[in-house]
Design a protein around this nucleic acid. Structure first.
Lengths: 223, 223
DNA sequence: AATTAACTGTGTACATTTAACACAAAGGGG
DNA sequence: CCCCTTTGTGTTAAATGTACACAGTTAATT
């Protein structure tokens, strides 16, 4: 084998789909490209990984510095190493999902001149640059498999949420409809959540009870 | 930011835990190091990823060239990018699980002078070099979650297998015991397998029927 | 003040699935 | 021919999931 040192140098980028739940709508945070190529198209946030940091460090840095978001729950999803990702460079993408509750999501930094951000419903995303649409799709499928995980649920739902909100999120992510009474019964008997005693005033109809996830529950898969 | 081009060059290695099932025992294929460091310790097979190949290409190459194994079913498991993996170099490990049925596993190449291989029961592995024990453990956990997948089952079991063998594999991987009659009933009603009409003669006791997975079944999760 | 619209909260009967369990059948070996 | 070992099958009770109807609470309307 003729040894070429450059042959083993790879460029890695991190890409993260940050999900939150806003009034029962599952949304993902995207950035808009302001320069060519793909000007005006949308991309997943992320960054090039240096060889003196872990991928998690790189993602946390990207999220906090560029977006101002803290306490994002991260899970590794998939690596994309196909050679035709970007015609110009060979870059390997490492994708993560990031989960944040809608209260923490409010602390997102205001858009700067060089960066435009927006939350999109996961079933209605705009045109995306490179292969980011494919990566986002894979990440949504990953979230779908993960939504039954107690850690994932705790990360997405703030201290006060209602059962109808929880159910709507389930229905969107799993793309099903559920019986309201059976969903409630099942979720309450699981013993993960507790009634806060407060109610969600201000909406239409009878105010819903506010629940929160118990602090001490450990990771496990429901259903 | 002071731009240092070398800062973004990363070395990637692929590491694959190849599992097979040998008479109801779940086993993993390991290599023995013949040189320092960690001489005599065992490692997962794999290779350094070039920037003109995908990770899958790299793994298939490692498996076929070094081990002579073909038709290994691969699934991406996890990336290890922590900085202390190897004190000498910063190498990012990308781990896969590889699944092969015990008939195909017989075609493994004979050990050469520079390479020693052996199959180990997953609950009884030898001392391993670097952080490979940790990686193997993560891969076994991944297999545990994946064993309910029809593609995974098809990859591990050859055309002729018995239901007791299938059950033993399940019990080892999930670390549980199951009722023989209920396991059988559940698996048969799933409709994934068919009776070949042959029997597994030669063992102790009544010969077991031989089954095979149906060709046309598509990927789905049982249980 | 009464009515309506919109939504949330609860109980009950039925169907399906899971779990526990005992015995018969088919080989091999003495 | 009997014994040992292992595989194959049915039945019942418990638990879980599914379908479904009505009452409670608020805001808006008349």
């Amino acid at each position: 084998m003729d040894f070429n040192p450059g042959k083993y140098y790879n460029i890695l980028e991190s890409l993260v789909s940050i999900f939150t739940i806003d009034q029962g709508q599952v949304k993902v945070l995207l950035l808009r490209k302001k320069s060519e190529p793909y000007r005006g198209y949308w991309i997943l946030p992320g960054g090039i990984v240096s060889n003196d940091e872990t991928i998690e460090m790189n993602i946390i840095d990207s999220i906090e510095v560029k977006l101002g978001l803290k306490d994002v729950y991260l899970e590794q999803c998939h690596i994309f190493s196909n050679l035709d990702r970007d015609p110009d460079d060979r870059i390997i993408a490492i994708s993560y999902i990031g989960l944040i509750d809608n209260v923490s999501a409010l602390f997102k930094r205001e858009d700067r001149d060089d960066i435009q951000t927006a939350w999109f419903k996961i079933n209605d995303v705009p045109k995306m640059a490179y292969d980011h649409a494919r990566i986002l799709k894979k990440n949504i499928e990953f979230l779908r498999r993960k939504i039954v995980n107690s850690n994932v649920l705790k990360s997405l739902f703030p201290s006060d949420f209602t059962l109808p909100e929880l159910q709507k999120a389930y229905e969107q992510i799993l793309n099903v409809t559920m019986d309201r009474r059976n969903f409630r019964k099942k979720f309450i008997t699981l013993g993960l959540i507790e009634d806060t005693g407060d109610k969600n005033v201000g909406g239409n109809g009878r105010p819903a009870k506010l629940y929160s996830f118990k602090e001490e529950i450990k990771e496990r898969n429901l259903f």
